[in-house]
């Protein structure tokens, strides 16, 4: 039982909805409980598509293959059902929700997880929020700001990590969390992920990144290289290091 992967992807083909452009051409991937995986790849390789698709983004359509999460077909589920089942996507471009404070947003998200008639305990919620912010070294005033509205790149990404901390996912998908961050912000965000990972060792993390630098701070157990909609190489952390020195050139021909 403990050996069954938490997420299992088989021969996944996907295209942009409303268009005939196939982006994923047969992806296979297994993630086990508590593992940290990284998928690296050049722009346009399909790695972000994979992350969004796993969270149920309406812009993509699966044309073939299967995705099994905790033994169940996840492709049948709506994005909110996937979230409630424990899948979390940290967005590359977090969306603004003007007029809605982070606290209110998170309270609504947590309330949505409860059965009808059940009400979230506001004091418990407040305690949880404050302690999560403390762990992530965030100013409590941050919780009163409208979600992503007028945020800097770094603030947006930290907000994603805060949401991850509050929603306590089983599977965290981190879509280019390092993009647009300077090195200080990158460290803060990576530190946050590491702490959450320590607190919850059973959490599985899939990091999507173009650059190796995030992996200096978050150590993956497995690294995969994705090129042109396929995973072309998988291995340990050494794969990332090889990429750092050699670049993606070698794989472009492999993927072709």
């Amino acid at each position: 039982m403990s050996d069954a992967p938490i997420l299992s992807i088989r021969n996944l083909h996907a295209k942009v909805a409303d268009e005939d452009i196939e982006i994923l051409h047969g992806v296979d991937l297994d993630l086990n409980k508590g593992e940290i995986h990284a998928i690296m790849g050049p722009n346009g390789s399909g790695k972000s598509t994979l992350a969004k698709l796993l969270a149920g983004h309406p812009g993509y359509e699966v044309t073939d293959g299967t995705v099994t999460y905790k033994g169940e077909d996840v492709l049948e589920l709506e994005p909110d059902e996937r979230s409630q089942a424990g899948i979390f996507l940290a967005f590359q471009y977090p969306v603004e929700v003007p007029g809605v404070s982070i606290a209110n947003f998170l309270r609504t998200a947590l309330q949505a997880r409860l059965d009808e008639g059940e009400e979230i305990d506001l004091f418990d919620f407040q305690d949880q929020l404050m302690s999560a912010m403390e762990v992530l070294e965030m100013d409590p005033a941050f919780a009163e700001r409208p979600v992503n509205d007028g945020f800097s790149g770094g603030e947006k990404k930290r907000n994603e990590i805060l949401q991850m901390a509050m929603l306590k996912p089983t599977l965290a998908l981190m879509d280019e969390t390092d993009s647009g961050l300077d090195i200080d912000a990158l460290q803060v965000v990576a530190e946050g992920v590491n702490r959450l990972s320590e607190e919850n060792p059973e959490m599985t993390v899939l990091i999507i990144t173009h650059y190796q630098r995030l992996l200096n701070y978050i150590k993956p157990d497995h690294v995969h290289v994705m090129v042109k909609g396929r995973i072309v190489r998988s291995g340990g952390p050494e794969v990332a290091e090889a990429l750092e020195s050699e670049g993606y050139e070698e794989f472009r021909t492999v993927g072709a």
Partner: peptide
């Protein structure tokens, strides 16, 4: 999608956006 990926139903998401 952003709100739904946090577990809110489409209606809950819509209501929250309107309230904001």
């Amino acid at each position: 999608f952003y709100l739904m990926s946090r577990g809110m139903s489409e209606e809950e998401a819509m209501a929250l956006i309107v309230r904001g």
